[in-house]
Design a protein around this nucleic acid. Structure first.
Lengths: 205, 205
DNA sequence: CAAGAGTTTGACCAAATGGTCAGGATCACG
DNA sequence: CGTGATCCTGACCATTTGGTCAAACTCTTG
């Protein structure tokens, strides 16, 4: 639960490098697929040195996931009850898509964890995450009731937004294999498509 | 490439049991997370016996993925140029959702593979899969041009359908954690939501 | 039922892997 | 500059894991 904050500069810097290397490894090969040797090499440290900063491989994994959860849900928290419903949701979609483009490793780390049954974060999902989602679902339901948003199941709307946006990070290999783009240009097309999809589906009338 | 077909009844039965156990293991824990001992125990066979039927762990993985690819893309192949465009696409969505409900292990196996960079199936993705998708994208683009479908980027439409439907298999742990359903009832709600989402977004006018 | 093909297994192995530890190097600071 | 705290490492260890193999068992069929 409580993190003892790093004290020295060396600690700050080395913990950062370790977590960065570990994020590379875990997101690309899953928890079991990543090895300490590999992480150590990428971080430029020796294996025992890794274990000087983190008591175990699992501790690195947990540290990464906890750090992730914080920022990951930020776009959802920003859903503003005062704004225009359709604009708010479209804005959420686009912010989430930005996250997928800018933090694909974090997205894949999360995906790996959930696909394998969420062994380390089920409590978080059924706790704070569920609370937040239920809260925003109520907001969306209110918008629907007021007629400013097409009536939809709010939970499944949120699921669909997660799915469509994270898809570009998690299934990047497939997307690139099919589109064969030289760069990240396809994110622009995805932006246009998703905005249109949700705007048309959610605008009443 | 070429499979030597099993000859005896024992071979047929044991290969089936091994692949079933391997699918359980690989889909739940990824390729590296699954162990031969675990698969052997689940299949009710000894570890050396496993390796009598398959030359290596990887051979099991490849056999599973190849078997999967075949049926996985069937719904997309069924997109009928003669049908009503919106109905065809909605039908595709619902068929894909049925697959996610009925074959979640296969979906997760595929997800694990892609998230980790599709090391074993990139050729298939850039080959036959891309060909099929490009073909159907052309069909959808034609529907759009004829005015019977809202103009959309066909590739991203297909991606969004994959994402929203497979989400219910791949992120099952998260969906259940948030909805806390006692059974598979949420698939009914997903059905209603997705049909509405795509029908509203794609119907012209 | 004899015999060869097909099937199964216990014992074993090499490599990989997460982790430990005693001691040495380096740094911060009085 | 001395000294205690912090940082780092080579050597080592136990376990796990994918895979091998010779021998034994069982099934089929002439």
């Amino acid at each position: 639960m409580e993190d003892i904050p790093p004290r020295t500069r060396i600690q700050t810097e080395n913990r950062r490098r370790i977590l960065d290397a570990a994020l590379d490894a875990f997101s690309a090969q899953g928890f079991r697929g990543a090895t300490l040797d590999q992480i150590a090499r990428a971080a430029g440290l020796s294996k025992p040195n890794l274990l000087y900063y983190f008591p175990s491989k699992e501790a690195m994994h947990i540290a990464l996931i906890e750090a992730l959860m914080d920022t990951w849900l930020d776009p959802l928290r920003k859903l503003d009850p005062e704004g225009d419903p359709v604009d708010e949701i479209v804005g959420y979609v686009l912010r989430k898509l930005d996250l997928a483009r800018d933090f694909p490793r974090e997205s894949r780390l999360f995906a790996n964890e959930i696909v394998q049954g969420a062994p380390n974060i089920l409590p978080h999902i059924t706790g704070p995450l569920k609370t937040l989602v239920d809260d925003k679902a109520t907001l969306i339901a209110g918008w629907s009731r007021s007629g400013r948003l097409t009536p939809v199941d709010p939970h499944h709307l949120i699921f669909s937004i997660w799915a469509t946006t994270q898809h570009y990070a998690d299934f990047d290999a497939q997307v690139r294999g099919i589109l064969a783009p030289a760069n990240d240009a396809h994110f622009g097309d995805a932006r246009v498509f998703l905005e249109q999809l949700y705007r048309r589906a959610l605008t009443p009338g």
